[in-house]
């Protein structure tokens, strides 16, 4: 009986660890990254994942002419400054946050509608930990009412 209880405890513990890891990014996006969008209105879309240092991600989105947009790219504290670039269909780099003091946000408006790519990289840390750091990375978009 005692062994069954111990086994159950381990299973519940593992399930709750797995759930917490998932739930962390939702909370991180809502409570931390979304604040970066103020005074813009968050579009309501959710783009977040757990990334490890050195890992890269890409997001594709159409941005429309005449609209004012804000991109916010945020990472958990353990990941350091998340690097991001905004790239057009001609592969031109329109914005690189490393050239802007590692800013988490970029505000822009478009003269004509365009499909853009947001390329993200979690930098490799300089810590002496044996294991690479992991944490939530969230990409959020805000716009202004016209």
């Amino acid at each position: 009986m005692k062994r069954i209880l111990q086994g159950l405890f381990v299973i519940i513990l593992l399930a709750s660890v797995s759930f917490t890891v998932h739930a962390q990014c939702k909370g991180f996006a809502k409570k931390i990254c979304k604040l970066e969008l103020i005074p813009f209105i968050h579009d309501g879309n959710y783009h977040a994942a757990i990334l490890t240092e050195g890992e890269e991600a890409e997001l594709y989105k159409t941005f429309y002419s005449g609209q004012d947009y804000r991109i916010a790219v945020c990472g958990s504290e353990a990941l350091g400054n998340i690097e991001f670039q905004v790239i057009d269909a001609y592969k031109n780099i329109l914005y690189d946050n490393r050239e802007h003091n590692n800013s988490r946000i970029w505000d822009f408006r478009l003269e004509s509608s365009q499909q853009l790519k947001i390329a993200i990289k979690v930098p490799v840390g300089k810590g002496d930990s044996e294991y690479p750091a992991s944490g939530c990375v969230s990409i959020m978009f805000g716009f202004k009412e016209k």
Partner: peptide, 12 residues
């Protein structure tokens, strides 16, 4: 890489 696609949300 991890790839995300973003459609205009209902609000947008």
């Amino acid at each position: 890489k991890k790839i995300f696609y973003s459609l205009p949300s209902p609000l947008e």
